[in-house]
């Protein structure tokens, strides 16, 4: 998981979705996830996923990194589907639900700096939870980089070798132990900084204003359209045979999005 790629895209990106307010993007993500929860037709849901991917391609978001994260839960969903689903169609739906929901939240994170995503969560959780959440995300970058450095160092010193699994395991757990100690030292340093700055609880994040009301409306409308599509097929069982229309529409939207994104690169 490359968390730095997420942060880079969220902070440095300049797409229409980056200009929308975090609040509208959170509403849009909630609508799509509500659609995922309600979905009972894998074909219609696949159409929504294709349309989402088309939108991301049109906005020239880093699709490769996004797909890596969005497809990751598919592996676990497959295991769950294999273990618990009563049939192949249900299993397909479970995997599609996992990928669509993941792609939605990943799109949110790739277009919104993390303090802005956490700001609404801070309002509904106790102060210590909100502050620790911000601290966690900050520490995540530091520890991920430290682990990469440690792993590289162990490998360069021939500590990890396929021929000697026992020695490799020892070296890896020592690296993790080192990382654990480093994380305590990091916590102590952060405590010192908080002490110096007179922290008394309550790290505040100022919500960002919209740079493009049209982008706000577009994000919410597109998400509402996706939810409406899924709700329609759920509410009207007589339409069940026509869900392929949603899939074809999604495929066309995806193709147009890819072509638009390539042309405006």
């Amino acid at each position: 998981m490359d968390v730095t790629a997420i942060d880079r895209s969220a902070v440095l990106g300049s797409s229409a979705l980056h200009r929308a307010t975090p609040a509208s993007k959170l509403v849009a993500a909630t609508l799509v996830i509500a659609g995922v929860v309600a979905a009972n037709d894998p074909v219609a849901l696949f159409g929504v996923l294709l349309a989402l991917a088309g939108g991301a391609a049109a906005l020239r978001l880093p699709l490769r990194s996004m797909w890596v994260l969005a497809l990751y839960p598919a592996l676990f969903a497959l295991v769950f589907a294999f273990a618990a689903a009563p049939g192949a169609v249900t299993a397909l739906l479970i995997v599609l639900k996992a990928v669509t929901a993941a792609f939605t939240v990943v799109t949110l994170m790739f277009t919104t700096p993390y303090p802005q995503v956490f700001a609404p969560i801070q309002r509904i959780t106790p102060g210590i939870v909100g502050d620790a959440l911000l601290m966690t995300y900050r520490s995540l970058f530091i520890l991920a980089e430290k682990l990469a450095d440690l792993t590289r160092a162990v490998r360069l010193r021939a500590g990890v070798s396929a021929r000697q699994p026992l020695r490799s395991a020892k070296a890896t757990t020592r690296a993790l132990g080192g990382l654990l100690l480093y994380s305590f030292d990091l916590a102590q340093r952060e405590y010192d900084i908080l002490y110096l700055r007179g922290y008394e609880g309550g790290l505040r994040v100022t919500p960002r204003r919209s740079a493009s009301p049209a982008a706000d409306a577009g994000a919410v409308l597109a998400a509402a359209l996706g939810l409406a599509t899924i709700a329609l097929f759920r509410a009207l069982p007589s339409l069940a045979g026509y869900s392929w229309i949603a899939a074809v529409t999604g495929a066309v939207a995806c193709a147009i999005g890819i072509m638009y994104g390539r042309r405006h690169r």
Binding site: G127, I128, D131, A132, M135, T136, L143, F184, A187, Y191
Partner: peptide, 19 residues
């Protein structure tokens, strides 16, 4: 003390996330 707890929870949670 939240001043002590916040960075500690942050660092340990980040470690668990990395793992």
């Amino acid at each position: 003390g939240s001043r002590r707890a916040v960075p500690l929870v942050g660092a340990v949670s980040a470690l668990v996330l990395v793992a």
